[in-house]
């Protein structure tokens, strides 16, 4: 169950489950107190023991993810990705940022493609990363 961040007012429907969200001052505060904290990607910080990583490649892959997020994504793309992972739908993000679904989707889509391309260029497959962080 993905933890949904607190937010003042509003209901977000995620995967058919309605959640009441109360708390934080702004949407941005709720999903990211600061720009996307990519240190979270280091397995140790995310609560995954580094000892479980099967290989040095795994750690390298995780660091590559972090590097891509920091350098390849724009701040808006990071915010949308962060919000999406926190449980907001694209419609939910559009409402909170007072934009529209198309704009939010484009940010999310472009971010995904950049990450995918970046990984391919660095020589990693999705399996490499999945196995590394499984």
């Amino acid at each position: 169950m993905v933890a949904v961040p607190p937010f003042a007012g509003g209901i977000v429907i995620v995967g058919g489950v309605t959640r009441d969200i109360v708390g934080a001052e702004t949407f941005a505060d709720a999903v990211s107190p600061s720009p996307f904290d990519t240190e979270d990607f280091l397995p140790a910080k995310a609560g995954i023991s580094e000892k479980r990583l099967p290989s040095k490649n795994g750690r390298v892959a995780a660091l590559e993810f972090q590097r891509l997020i920091e350098s390849a994504l724009t701040e808006k793309q990071r915010l949308v990705v962060r919000s999406f992972l926190s449980g907001y739908s694209t419609d939910g993000i559009a409402e909170q940022t007072e934009t529209n679904r198309n704009a939010v989707y484009k940010l999310l889509h472009d971010a995904r493609v950049k990450l995918k391309t970046g990984f391919a260029e660095a020589g990693f497959s999705a399996d490499d990363v999945t196995m590394a962080l499984a």
Binding site: D40, A46, V81, S86, R112
Partner: peptide
């Protein structure tokens, strides 16, 4: 806010299934 393991897995999935088409 930290990303938990499930969120990281989801991000990997989002990345792997991205289609530039």
């Amino acid at each position: 806010m930290k990303l938990d393991a499930k969120q990281i897995a989801e991000l990997i999935q989002l990345t792997a299934t991205a289609r530039s088409e």
